[in-house]
Amino acid sequence: MHELSICQALVDQLEGIAAQHPGKQVAEVYLGIGPLSGVVPQLLNDAFSVARAGSCADAATLHIHESEIIVRCLSCGKQSPATANRLLCSHCGEWQTELVSGDELLLERVELEAFEQSGESSQKYH
């Protein structure tokens, strides 16, 4: 349910980026989301269609790259894939690990295009 708050924060960031590029609007938005970020990609996608309305990202498409959970063992030093509720080392079974990836909640990249008043771009991206 907090996905909408997060999308509103995303749109604020997009507005800031668009403001630095006069005459352009946001066309593509690339996010990196990890399973341990506490955010559900599908819900984020749904919320984005609400949050972007009337903003510089009104016609933007959201791309979500879902990262994998990787942990590094504090005992044997090896890295291994893990699941959200079992962040154990798959090599030696140790529970004391640190997260290498999997909790991302990142705005990775934004693609801008020349602003079109005809609404052509919204057709292009829907």
Partner: peptide, 26 residues
Amino acid sequence: GNRHLIDEGGKHEHSGAVEVLSNLLH
């Protein structure tokens, strides 16, 4: 966790595509 995005793409430039890499809750 995200360095590969830069390494693989080999770019970190600021043209039409803006590499941001900031937390959504910045």
